[in-house]
Each structure stands twice: as structure tokens, then as C-alpha cells.
Write a protein that binds this DNA or RNA. Structure first.
Lengths: 208, 208
DNA sequence: CCAATTAAGATACGCATAGTATCTTATAAA
DNA sequence: TTTATAAGATACTATGCGTATCTTAATTGG
């Protein structure tokens, strides 16, 4: 039809042990590699400078392959974030006191959020606002992330708190405040801030 | 030097009463018009679809004129937001009770934030993260926006609250929670949510 | 009141990136 | 071994950013 230059002269040998090796990943293996590449690219250049081209290049594949699986930059990055590490996942802390448990939970959450970076989260929310998975991710509503309710139940059983005072809003309050702090400030949240949230706000609201 | 087509044949008559009228705005008048155009454009197309070209066109001027004053899209939009309406500004409510005052303050703030739109705020934060004015705007730290401390001082004088309990974090808590809610959810914040924040969280923390 | 200066407004351009389409060929399935 | 699928390379369109250049209206100041 038109003067399209056909194919490549060099048959695209990817860096393996032997040069000239021809191999093509497919399916899950390829998908995992792309998600990893997207995460790496996010860490290196940040969300605002992340391009589909860049991710494809890093994954040693091409844009078309990436677009075949994710329809936009935001979708890809959200998938990469979840693939890398859910925000709230992990074992439920059990130190024997509510204060100890929740400090562990909040520190873990803030480390993971800072790893992703507030900039990325804002970027995603800005161009992908009506999508659900991102908010689920942020709020830690992934399946298997019910740490907070487990901790609160145990604390109530120990008699540390008045379980009648535990509304959903209060249960999510500490995480909300940490999230808010990270989203609005550039510097990482200090441990003193986390302790303040727990000791001056959260615990006083729940004590019998 | 090169084959540049020179000038316009048509001398750019802007819509005034008489066609053919030649007039050029300058200085503050022009600046105000551009800020207004930027705000209008923000309302119509949203931040993610707002372009410098679009703003210039709406203001009936050209991109170059806009760039002469603001170095980026984000800078322009922040200026437009502040020009349109500071988040926390306005008279300090004085209903005679802390609860009444703070409800007014929070409702006002949430209306204004929703007018700007969470999407815009995320977009701005995403591409302009290290800039100070936006966070000042969001946190209501503009000069003349000390409503909250005035309200709290009056409440303390009336003996409604224990002023020893008022830490900076607790003082900003209600606004932080409203802001957080708006930034994370699509729908406008309900009045019940505002009341809940005040009655279940804020007031219990300050009562003697 | 006229000449010199400033900046508005029009336009073009280079560049980056999004997203799509097309083609060859390695890999998997039958 | 043949056939179907999709990986990977490449080209292409469209958009928008940010800059530069040029003309001319408006302002300033002697």
C-alpha cells in the first residue's frame, strides 16, 4: 500500500547469555516482566516522567504489547503498584497492646506509601480519578487486608477499649491521617507524627 | 532569515461592540482577564484537559502572552484558583457555640474545595508537587485565614473547651479530614459526614 | 504632541508522547 | 507438521508544550 520499510534487518536478539538467541516471552511471564519494568521505571523516573515507551523499552518489548494489556498509563502503573506490594498486606501485628499493634501498622503503611511516592499517587488520581482500584489500594481494602479490624477486636477483648465507641470512621482515622499527611507534604512523615496521631487522637477517642 | 509568513492579514479585531475596533489590554486588566479565562476553562474542561492554548483562546489572546506571566500550566491554574476565591477566606463565623462555628467553617470549605474539584487538585499536585503556594492554599494558610484559631479562642473563653488540649494537629484535624475525604472520593462530601467529624471526633477530643 | 520604548497578539516550529495500525515471525496448540 | 496466536518492530497521526520571531498598538517621556 505505502512505502513502509519492512521488518528489521536485525532480528532483535535480546540480551541473554548467547548473542543471537531468539526467545519470546508470552502470557504470564511476559506480563510479570512488564509490571516489574513499570515499577522500576516508576522508581527511576517518577510517574510524571514515566512513558509507555520507556516501560516497553525497559521490559525489552514494544509499546503495542503493553497497550494490548493495559489501556492507559494509569492502569498499567496501578497494576504495577499492586503487583509490587499491597499497601496494607502482611501479617497482622500482635504485640499484646493496641498501641503497639497500631504503631506497627501505621509505620508499615507509611513506608510503603512513601515508597510509591505522593507524586505518583496524585498523578494517578489526576488522570484516572473515577477508577475504583486505586482508591481501594489506597484505603487498604484489598482482600486480606483487614488488619485494623482484627487489632481492634483483640483490643476490645482485652478490655483496652470501649468497643461501642468504634465507628468505621474512627477505625480508619489513623490510616486516614497518615495518608493525608503524606499526600500533602513533601518530606516523609516523622515517627513523632505517627505517635502523636495514635496517642493524642486515636487512643483518647476509644478509651473507656 | 527564513520563509516565515509575515503577520496577519486580518488585524485581529476582538469582539467588541463595533467590528474592526482595535484595542489591546495590558497589565493588570489583561492579567485579570487571563486568570478569569483560566478559571472558566477549568470549570468547563477540567484540569486534565485544560491547555494553555485553550486558556489563551478563551481570553482572546495568545499562548505567548500567557507564558510571559506564568511559567507553567500548574502555576497559572493555582493563580487562577487563588484569584477566584481563597479556600478559607471570608468572615469568621460567630454563632455563640463552637459546634455552630465549626460546622459553618467546614461546610464553606467543602463547598469551595468541591468547586475546584479533587481532580484538579490531584493534577496540580502531581505535576507541581514541590511548590509551596498550592499547599498553602489547600491548608488555608493564606494571610487573613486564621478563622479556626479565632473560633477556638472564643470557645475557650466561653469555657466550652479545655484550651490545654488544643494542639496544632487537633486544631487542623477537622479541616484535614474534610480535605482527605474530598480528595479520596468522587462524590461530594455529605453533611452527615461533616457532622460526624465534628461530633464524634473533634468535640470529644477538646471537651474538658 | 511626536518619537522612542514596551509588550500584546499572531504565528510557526521543534519536540515529546499518546495511542493506533501494520507487518513479520517465534511460539504454542492441534 | 501445519495452523493459529500473539510478540515485537516500526511507522504514523494527533495533540500539546514551550520557545522564538515578527508586526503593531499602547504607553511613556522629552
Amino acid at each position: 500500500m505505502d512505502s513502509q520499510k519492512l521488518a528489521a534487518e536485525e532480528p532483535a536478539r535480546r540480551e541473554l547469555g548467547e548473542p543471537g538467541a531468539k526467545t519470546r516471552r508470552r502470557g504470564d511471564s511476559l506480563e510479570t516482566d512488564i509490571l516489574q519494568a513499570a515499577w522500576d521505571e516508576l522508581m527511576v523516573v517518577g510517574y510524571s516522567h514515566l512513558t509507555m515507551e520507556g516501560v516497553a523499552e525497559r521490559a525489552k518489548t514494544s509499546k503495542a504489547v503493553v497497550y494490548r494489556r493495559w489501556h492507559s498509563r494509569a492502569e498499567l502503573v496501578i497494576a504495577a503498584m499492586i503487583h509490587h506490594q499491597p499497601l496494607m498486606g502482611g501479617d497482622v501485628p500482635d504485640t499484646g497492646s493496641l498501641r503497639g499493634d497500631i504503631l506497627i501498622l501505621l509505620r508499615r503503611m507509611s513506608l510503603r506509601l512513601e515508597e510509591v511516592g505522593a507524586e505518583s499517587i496524585h498523578g494517578l488520581m489526576g488522570e484516572y480519578f473515577n477508577e475504583v482500584p486505586l482508591v481501594l489500594y489506597l484505603r487498604g481494602r484489598q482482600p486480606g487486608a483487614e488488619s485494623m479490624s482484627v487489632i481492634l477486636r483483640r483490643a476490645a477483648e482485652r478490655g483496652e477499649i470501649d468497643s461501642a465507641k468504634v465507628t468505621p470512621r474512627i477505625a480508619s482515622l489513623p490510616a486516614d491521617l497518615v495518608r493525608h499527611e503524606i499526600l500533602l507534604t513533601h518530606a516523609p512523615i516523622s515517627d513523632a507524627t505517627i505517635v502523636e496521631i495514635v496517642d493524642d487522637i486515636f487512643l483518647p477517642l476509644l478509651r473507656p
